[in-house]
């Protein structure tokens, strides 16, 4: 019994573990102080040396999500172009998930409501059961959630590509016959900046954590404004 609780707890631990892993990467960087109004950049980073005017300068290459191509509930192609220059929040779910997904979706709806009017913020939810979650299934799910495609894309596509993406976003996901619903996955919400870099990792099943996400988004929006200046 009690499998459901286990699963969500498990993901809670996983979130903690990831935050730890992520912050340890982050911790290696001397200049990356997260002051009150900037967000860290998560993931592995690489110093790259180049020569400018005979002097060696070191640039840091941050972990960036690679190009991708999926299809949403309106059969539209969604790619890196769709999110170019936008801030987006992403997660992994499946429509028949009996465990943590309903909670995640109710929390994602809060993010949706908060940034509904802001064209610079998008939401991308990947199905980890794309064989079942066809465009038609996602269409019905979106209608019942009452969401607009332009703001919140529910994605399906090639299964391996979706699982690879989960890894890129540092979210654990795998097919698991023993798990309820047939899959296990983390309940994380990942906050991405306009350059497809991970800037925040939140627990999408916890209202407090999602409050923080909602509060953190303006920090990235401000960064964007500064870049434009």
């Amino acid at each position: 019994m009690n499998k459901r609780n286990k699963l969500s707890l498990k993901s809670g631990f996983a979130v903690a573990a990831f935050a730890l892993v992520a912050t340890s990467f982050y911790g290696c960087d001397s200049q990356g102080g997260s002051s009150a109004n900037t967000l860290p950049i998560y993931g592995e980073r690489e110093p790259v040396e180049r020569t400018v005017d005979g002097k060696t300068v070191t640039d840091t290459i941050y972990h960036q999500i690679p190009d991708f191509a999926f299809v949403d509930q309106d059969s539209q192609r969604v790619t890196q172009e769709t999110v170019a220059g936008k801030i987006y929040v992403t997660d992994f779910f499946f429509t028949t998930c009996p465990t943590i997904c309903p909670k995640m979706k109710s929390q994602m709806l809060r993010v949706y409501e908060a940034y509904k009017e802001n064209p610079d913020v998008l939401l991308l939810s990947h199905s980890i059961d794309p064989t079942h979650d066809t465009v038609a299934v996602l269409r019905d799910y979106a209608d019942r959630l009452g969401i607009e495609t332009q703001k919140w894309h529910l994605l399906t596509g090639d299964k391996d590509s979706i699982y690879d993406m989960a890894m890129q976003y540092l979210v654990p996901a795998q097919a698991d016959g023993g798990a309820e619903g047939g899959f296990t996955h983390g309940g994380h919400f990942i906050l991405m900046d306009g350059q497809r870099r991970i800037r925040g990792i939140y627990d999408g099943t916890k209202p407090e954590s999602v409050d923080k996400l909602i509060d953190d988004i303006p920090l990235l929006l401000n960064e964007k404004k500064d870049e434009k200046k």
């Binding site: 009690n2 609780n5 286990k6 707890l9 498990k10 809670g12 631990f13 996983a14 573990a17 990831f18 890894m167 654990p172 795998q174 296990t184 983390g186």
Partner: peptide
Amino acid sequence: KLVALALGAFALTSLTQ
């Protein structure tokens, strides 16, 4: 690594249950 982490957490939570 991810899978191992998740499994470890799983064992722990089963215990506390």
